[in-house]
Amino acid sequence: MTPKEIAARYDAKVFDTPAAALEAGFVLTETAEPRNVWNKASAASAIVLKLVDKKSRGEAEEIGLVVESWRVTGCYKE
């Protein structure tokens, strides 16, 4: 699965840049800079699962993922 597909699976919004996420009122979390597409998917999955956990605990209202060409960043809205 690609990072975008992973985001769609867990109802996470997808942003192209961190600035776009910040503009939409999201708070950025961790960033990963993987070397290849498999590692990128894994990094996206790891980030999104942590955000899903955060959402299930009620600490986030909405979650999102910033997908750049060589970087994946998590984000959430309180």
Binding site: A32, R35, N39, S42, A43, S45, A46, K50
Partner: peptide, 9 residues
Amino acid sequence: RKDYPLEFI
């Protein structure tokens, strides 16, 4: 675990 990324961090 699935929430642990593949790449060295």
